[in-house]
Amino acid sequence: MNQLQVFNFGSAEFRTIQKEGIPWFVLGEVCKVLEIGNPSQVKTRLEDGVITNEVIPDALGRSQMTTLINEDGLYDVILESRKPEAKAFRKWVTSEVLPSIRKNGMYATDELLDNPDLLIEVATKLKEERQARIAAETKIELDKPKVVFAEALEVSQSAILVGQLAKLIRQNGIDIGQNRLFQLLREQGYLLNKGEQYNMPSQRSMEQGLFEIKTTTLNNPDGSVRVTRTTKVTGKGQIYFVNKFKKGA
Protein backbone atom coordinates (compact mmCIF):
# COMPACT_ATOMS: atom_id res chain seq x y z
CA MET A 1 0.00 0.00 0.00
CA ASN A 2 1.36 3.42 -0.95
CA GLN A 3 0.64 6.28 1.47
CA LEU A 4 1.19 9.84 0.32
CA GLN A 5 2.61 12.13 3.01
CA VAL A 6 3.47 15.81 2.90
CA PHE A 7 6.37 17.21 4.97
CA ASN A 8 7.32 20.80 5.67
CA PHE A 9 10.93 21.80 6.24
CA GLY A 10 10.76 25.47 7.11
CA SER A 11 8.68 27.07 4.37
CA ALA A 12 9.44 24.32 1.83
CA GLU A 13 7.07 21.42 1.24
CA PHE A 14 7.83 18.00 -0.18
CA ARG A 15 5.95 14.74 -0.53
CA THR A 16 6.79 11.09 0.06
CA ILE A 17 5.06 7.78 -0.40
CA GLN A 18 5.58 4.43 1.26
CA LYS A 19 6.11 1.64 -1.25
CA GLU A 20 6.21 -1.83 0.30
CA GLY A 21 7.02 -0.20 3.62
CA ILE A 22 9.91 1.86 2.24
CA PRO A 23 9.70 5.68 2.12
CA TRP A 24 10.34 7.33 -1.25
CA PHE A 25 10.83 11.09 -1.67
CA VAL A 26 9.80 13.28 -4.62
CA LEU A 27 13.13 14.13 -6.25
CA GLY A 28 12.11 17.52 -7.67
CA GLU A 29 10.79 18.75 -4.33
CA VAL A 30 13.83 17.53 -2.40
CA CYS A 31 16.02 19.43 -4.88
CA LYS A 32 13.88 22.53 -4.30
CA VAL A 33 14.31 22.24 -0.51
CA LEU A 34 18.07 21.95 -0.99
CA GLU A 35 18.19 24.67 -3.68
CA ILE A 36 19.54 22.32 -6.35
CA GLY A 37 18.54 23.82 -9.67
CA ASN A 38 18.19 20.94 -12.14
CA PRO A 39 16.54 17.71 -10.85
CA SER A 40 16.93 16.09 -14.29
CA GLN A 41 20.73 16.37 -14.08
CA VAL A 42 20.66 15.05 -10.52
CA LYS A 43 18.63 12.08 -11.71
CA THR A 44 21.23 11.14 -14.32
CA ARG A 45 23.91 10.97 -11.61
CA LEU A 46 21.95 8.65 -9.34
CA GLU A 47 22.11 4.87 -9.56
CA ASP A 48 19.06 3.05 -10.91
CA GLY A 49 18.47 1.24 -7.63
CA VAL A 50 17.67 4.44 -5.74
CA ILE A 51 15.12 5.78 -8.27
CA THR A 52 11.56 4.79 -9.12
CA ASN A 53 8.55 6.34 -10.84
CA GLU A 54 5.04 6.41 -9.39
CA VAL A 55 1.73 8.09 -10.20
CA ILE A 56 0.91 10.45 -7.32
CA PRO A 57 -1.24 13.60 -6.99
CA ASP A 58 0.47 16.94 -7.56
CA ALA A 59 -0.24 20.15 -5.63
CA LEU A 60 -3.45 20.63 -7.63
CA GLY A 61 -4.64 17.08 -7.04
CA ARG A 62 -3.84 15.91 -10.57
CA SER A 63 -2.28 12.45 -10.84
CA GLN A 64 1.16 12.70 -12.43
CA MET A 65 4.01 10.27 -13.12
CA THR A 66 6.67 11.42 -10.64
CA THR A 67 10.34 10.56 -10.06
CA LEU A 68 11.05 9.38 -6.51
CA ILE A 69 14.24 8.52 -4.62
CA ASN A 70 14.66 6.22 -1.64
CA GLU A 71 16.60 6.93 1.54
CA ASP A 72 19.99 6.18 -0.04
CA GLY A 73 19.15 8.42 -2.97
CA LEU A 74 18.06 11.16 -0.58
CA TYR A 75 21.46 11.14 1.13
CA ASP A 76 23.21 11.25 -2.25
CA VAL A 77 21.18 14.33 -3.19
CA ILE A 78 21.84 16.01 0.17
CA LEU A 79 25.58 15.63 -0.43
CA GLU A 80 25.20 17.56 -3.70
CA SER A 81 23.64 20.58 -1.98
CA ARG A 82 25.74 23.63 -1.23
CA LYS A 83 23.03 24.99 1.04
CA PRO A 84 24.20 25.44 4.67
CA GLU A 85 20.89 24.00 5.89
CA ALA A 86 21.52 20.68 4.09
CA LYS A 87 23.09 19.22 7.21
CA ALA A 88 20.12 20.33 9.33
CA PHE A 89 17.74 18.88 6.74
CA ARG A 90 19.47 15.51 6.85
CA LYS A 91 19.43 15.50 10.65
CA TRP A 92 15.72 16.35 10.67
CA VAL A 93 14.90 13.56 8.20
CA THR A 94 16.95 10.94 10.04
CA SER A 95 15.96 11.92 13.59
CA GLU A 96 12.27 12.77 13.11
CA VAL A 97 10.73 11.91 9.74
CA LEU A 98 12.07 8.39 9.15
CA PRO A 99 11.68 7.13 12.75
CA SER A 100 8.09 8.42 12.80
CA ILE A 101 7.27 6.74 9.47
CA ARG A 102 8.69 3.43 10.68
CA LYS A 103 6.89 3.60 14.01
CA ASN A 104 3.49 4.92 12.95
CA GLY A 105 3.31 4.11 9.23
CA MET A 106 3.09 7.86 8.56
CA TYR A 107 4.77 11.10 9.60
CA ALA A 108 2.98 11.76 12.88
CA THR A 109 3.67 14.89 14.90
CA ASP A 110 2.75 15.08 18.59
CA GLU A 111 -0.18 17.30 17.62
CA LEU A 112 -1.51 14.62 15.27
CA LEU A 113 -1.04 11.74 17.71
CA ASP A 114 -2.77 13.68 20.51
CA ASN A 115 -5.75 14.66 18.34
CA PRO A 116 -7.94 11.65 17.34
CA ASP A 117 -10.23 13.76 15.13
CA LEU A 118 -7.27 15.16 13.22
CA LEU A 119 -5.78 11.67 12.92
CA ILE A 120 -9.03 10.38 11.40
CA GLU A 121 -9.08 13.33 8.99
CA VAL A 122 -5.53 12.61 7.84
CA ALA A 123 -6.23 8.90 7.50
CA THR A 124 -9.33 9.67 5.42
CA LYS A 125 -7.32 11.95 3.15
CA LEU A 126 -4.66 9.27 2.70
CA LYS A 127 -7.37 6.79 1.73
CA GLU A 128 -8.82 9.23 -0.82
CA GLU A 129 -5.37 9.91 -2.27
CA ARG A 130 -4.70 6.18 -2.53
CA GLN A 131 -7.99 5.65 -4.37
CA ALA A 132 -7.14 8.52 -6.73
CA ARG A 133 -3.71 7.01 -7.39
CA ILE A 134 -5.18 3.58 -8.11
CA ALA A 135 -7.70 5.14 -10.50
CA ALA A 136 -4.92 7.06 -12.28
CA GLU A 137 -2.74 3.94 -12.58
CA THR A 138 -5.70 1.99 -13.96
CA LYS A 139 -6.36 4.70 -16.55
CA ILE A 140 -2.71 4.70 -17.63
CA GLU A 141 -2.82 0.92 -18.06
CA LEU A 142 -6.05 1.14 -20.08
CA ASP A 143 -4.60 3.92 -22.26
CA LYS A 144 -1.44 1.98 -23.15
CA PRO A 145 -2.95 0.34 -26.27
CA LYS A 146 -4.15 3.77 -27.44
CA VAL A 147 -0.63 5.19 -27.07
CA VAL A 148 0.89 2.29 -28.98
CA PHE A 149 -1.81 2.65 -31.62
CA ALA A 150 -0.99 6.34 -32.07
CA GLU A 151 2.74 5.62 -32.36
CA ALA A 152 2.17 3.03 -35.05
CA LEU A 153 -0.50 4.92 -36.95
CA GLU A 154 1.98 7.47 -38.28
CA VAL A 155 3.67 4.85 -40.44
CA SER A 156 0.70 2.65 -41.27
CA GLN A 157 -0.84 4.42 -44.23
CA SER A 158 0.35 1.90 -46.83
CA ALA A 159 1.34 -1.77 -46.96
CA ILE A 160 4.99 -2.54 -46.27
CA LEU A 161 7.33 -5.51 -46.55
CA VAL A 162 7.94 -7.81 -43.58
CA GLY A 163 11.51 -6.51 -43.39
CA GLN A 164 10.17 -2.98 -43.05
CA LEU A 165 7.82 -4.18 -40.31
CA ALA A 166 10.85 -5.53 -38.42
CA LYS A 167 12.42 -2.06 -38.60
CA LEU A 168 9.18 -0.49 -37.38
CA ILE A 169 9.05 -2.88 -34.41
CA ARG A 170 12.71 -2.07 -33.59
CA GLN A 171 11.85 1.64 -33.61
CA ASN A 172 9.30 0.82 -30.93
CA GLY A 173 11.93 -0.68 -28.66
CA ILE A 174 11.89 -4.40 -29.60
CA ASP A 175 15.16 -5.94 -30.81
CA ILE A 176 14.17 -8.10 -33.80
CA GLY A 177 15.40 -8.57 -37.35
CA GLN A 178 13.73 -9.61 -40.59
CA ASN A 179 14.69 -13.32 -40.44
CA ARG A 180 13.59 -13.70 -36.83
CA LEU A 181 10.31 -11.93 -37.56
CA PHE A 182 9.58 -14.21 -40.53
CA GLN A 183 10.30 -17.21 -38.31
CA LEU A 184 7.94 -16.01 -35.57
CA LEU A 185 5.17 -15.22 -38.04
CA ARG A 186 5.46 -18.75 -39.44
CA GLU A 187 5.59 -20.36 -36.00
CA GLN A 188 2.51 -18.45 -34.86
CA GLY A 189 0.50 -19.31 -37.97
CA TYR A 190 0.40 -15.88 -39.59
CA LEU A 191 2.48 -17.07 -42.57
CA LEU A 192 2.56 -20.50 -44.22
CA ASN A 193 5.53 -22.78 -43.69
CA LYS A 194 5.58 -25.25 -46.59
CA GLY A 195 5.71 -25.67 -50.33
CA GLU A 196 4.98 -23.02 -52.92
CA GLN A 197 3.01 -21.02 -50.35
CA TYR A 198 6.07 -20.57 -48.13
CA ASN A 199 5.94 -17.14 -46.39
CA MET A 200 2.53 -16.43 -47.92
CA PRO A 201 -0.21 -15.25 -45.52
CA SER A 202 -2.40 -17.90 -43.95
CA GLN A 203 -6.14 -17.84 -44.55
CA ARG A 204 -6.68 -16.67 -40.98
CA SER A 205 -4.33 -13.69 -41.23
CA MET A 206 -5.79 -12.69 -44.59
CA GLU A 207 -9.30 -12.76 -43.10
CA GLN A 208 -8.01 -10.56 -40.26
CA GLY A 209 -6.79 -8.05 -42.83
CA LEU A 210 -3.19 -8.20 -41.58
CA PHE A 211 -1.56 -8.91 -44.94
CA GLU A 212 -2.06 -8.42 -48.63
CA ILE A 213 -0.36 -10.13 -51.55
CA LYS A 214 1.21 -8.01 -54.26
CA THR A 215 1.30 -9.76 -57.63
CA THR A 216 3.85 -8.64 -60.21
CA THR A 217 4.04 -9.83 -63.82
CA LEU A 218 7.53 -9.90 -65.36
CA ASN A 219 8.44 -10.46 -69.01
CA ASN A 220 11.45 -12.72 -69.38
CA PRO A 221 13.99 -12.20 -72.22
CA ASP A 222 12.78 -15.39 -73.94
CA GLY A 223 9.27 -14.00 -74.22
CA SER A 224 7.80 -16.04 -71.38
CA VAL A 225 5.94 -14.41 -68.55
CA ARG A 226 6.81 -14.84 -64.87
CA VAL A 227 4.45 -13.96 -62.04
CA THR A 228 5.84 -13.15 -58.57
CA ARG A 229 3.90 -12.76 -55.36
CA THR A 230 5.11 -10.74 -52.40
CA THR A 231 3.66 -10.69 -48.90
CA LYS A 232 3.06 -7.18 -47.58
CA VAL A 233 1.79 -6.01 -44.20
CA THR A 234 -1.29 -3.79 -44.29
CA GLY A 235 -1.73 -0.68 -42.17
CA LYS A 236 -3.98 -2.69 -39.87
CA GLY A 237 -1.32 -5.40 -39.68
CA GLN A 238 1.39 -2.90 -38.78
CA ILE A 239 -0.65 -1.60 -35.86
CA TYR A 240 -1.57 -5.15 -34.82
CA PHE A 241 2.00 -6.47 -34.75
CA VAL A 242 3.56 -3.39 -33.13
CA ASN A 243 0.95 -3.63 -30.36
CA LYS A 244 1.49 -7.37 -30.08
CA PHE A 245 5.28 -7.16 -29.75
CA LYS A 246 5.24 -4.18 -27.39
CA LYS A 247 2.72 -5.91 -25.16
CA GLY A 248 4.85 -9.07 -25.20
CA ALA A 249 7.95 -7.04 -24.27
Score class of each variant (00 low, 15 high):
102 R>I: 06
169 I>C: 00
64 Q>A: 14
138 T>E: 15
118 L>S: 12
156 S>G: 08
204 R>M: 15
200 M>Y: 12
58 D>P: 05
89 F>H: 03
189 G>T: 08
68 L>I: 07
122 V>R: 00
180 R>H: 09
3 Q>E: 11
154 E>C: 02
226 R>E: 15
169 I>F: 04
54 E>R: 07
197 Q>A: 15
95 S>Q: 14
225 V>A: 11
224 S>W: 02
209 G>L: 03
174 I>E: 10
166 A>M: 04
32 K>E: 12
70 N>H: 10
217 T>H: 04
24 W>E: 01
241 F>H: 11
126 L>G: 06
116 P>K: 01
200 M>W: 04
215 T>E: 13
9 F>T: 02
171 Q>L: 13
99 P>L: 05
83 K>H: 01
66 T>C: 13
202 S>N: 03
234 T>W: 04
237 G>S: 05
202 S>T: 14
102 R>W: 04
60 L>W: 07
20 E>G: 04
7 F>H: 13
12 A>R: 14
89 F>D: 00
190 Y>R: 09
212 E>M: 07
31 C>L: 00
84 P>E: 03
181 L>I: 06
135 A>H: 09
59 A>E: 12
225 V>I: 15
135 A>W: 07
168 L>S: 02
21 G>S: 13
247 K>C: 02
58 D>M: 13
161 L>E: 09
83 K>D: 09
242 V>C: 14
11 S>Q: 13
204 R>P: 00
18 Q>A: 07
90 R>C: 03
105 G>M: 10
218 L>H: 14
14 F>W: 05
30 V>D: 11
212 E>D: 10
6 V>W: 00
158 S>L: 06
87 K>H: 05
243 N>H: 11
158 S>T: 13
156 S>R: 01
114 D>H: 14
182 F>W: 14
144 K>E: 03
8 N>M: 11
239 I>S: 07
95 S>K: 07
117 D>C: 12
67 T>R: 04
204 R>G: 15
220 N>S: 12
168 L>Q: 06
214 K>P: 06
9 F>Y: 15
75 Y>F: 03
3 Q>T: 06
136 A>W: 07
